[in-house]
Simulated assay, not measured.
Amino acid sequence: MNQEEYIRSLFVQPDEVLDHVTKSIKQQGMPSISVSPEGGTFLTMLVRIAGAKQILEIGALGGYSGICLLRGLRKEGHLTSLELKQEYADLAHENLKKAGVGEQVTYRIGEALDSLEQLEKEGKTFDFFFIDADKPNYSNYLEYCIRLANPGAIIVADNVLWHGRVYDETDQEDSTRALRAFNEKIAEDSRLESLLIPIGDGMATARVKEK
């Protein structure tokens, strides 16, 4: 048993709803890149601890993370999910409906940076952010999240260890370099309190300081 299996054996319970989401993603030929089961448990717990009412998700895929986020959300809360592809958002919404939380989500389709710019123009703010989309734009997404954040908001980003590639200095692939830059930014930004949590493929977690 390795570290990941040990954590999962203790803290992740069987979940038919999330198992269905995983199967539906495979059946649709979509990439199997949802947040890890223990990462999903972590998201639910963090949202609940934060008492979040408004969540912004960047990258919906098939709805796995969306369900985990909404499970921690207050009943009057809402999830805004940004997704590049309409077919991914459609599957995610269908899965959220089956999970009984489909009424609490709104999808915005298209390039996430365009949607973030529009949200800023609309004056939208959020209590919790989850970044799990194209890696080269992680630092750009982080900057928007900080600008859209309510004081004390939580920002979480997945895949920041990139299967160990970020600390392999010989790996100079574009996504790897982008994630290294993101990790350095979230660690050093004076507007944030942050830490990299080594569960799943690594989850960078930050709190936006009150001004």
Rank of each mutant, 00 (worst) to 15 (best):
Q118N: 07
L79H: 11
L43G: 08
K53S: 14
E188A: 10
A157L: 04
L46N: 12
K53N: 15
R177E: 11
N159F: 05
I25N: 12
E76W: 08
A204H: 01
K98C: 14
G40N: 14
D158P: 06
D15R: 01
A133H: 02
R177P: 00
H93Q: 15
A60E: 06
G63L: 06
Q86A: 13
A206R: 02
S9H: 00
E94C: 06
R74S: 15
E83R: 03
M203A: 01
I58S: 07
L179Q: 03
E188P: 00
T80Q: 08
G77S: 09
L70N: 04
A50V: 08
K209V: 08
I199L: 08
E143A: 12
A60I: 08
K209I: 09
P31A: 01
D158I: 00
D19N: 10
K75Q: 14
G59W: 13
V105D: 13
E188T: 11
K53A: 07
N140R: 13
Y88R: 14
K209T: 04
V208C: 04
R177D: 04
T106I: 07
L113A: 05
R177V: 12
L161R: 08
Y141L: 03
R108M: 13
S175Q: 13
G200C: 09
E103N: 14
L116D: 06
R71S: 09
K85M: 15
D174N: 08
F128V: 03
Q3T: 04
I154W: 14
R8E: 10
L10C: 01
E5Q: 13
L116M: 11
Q104E: 11
I199H: 00
G51H: 08
F126D: 04
L79Y: 03
R191Y: 00
V17P: 04
E94F: 09
L82I: 13
S34A: 14
E57Y: 09
F126G: 06
E16T: 10
S115Y: 02
T106Y: 12
I67W: 14
E83A: 06
L196I: 15
R177T: 09
I33W: 14
T205F: 04
A153V: 04
G72P: 01
L148P: 11
G164Y: 01
S65C: 04
Y107T: 10
Q3V: 05
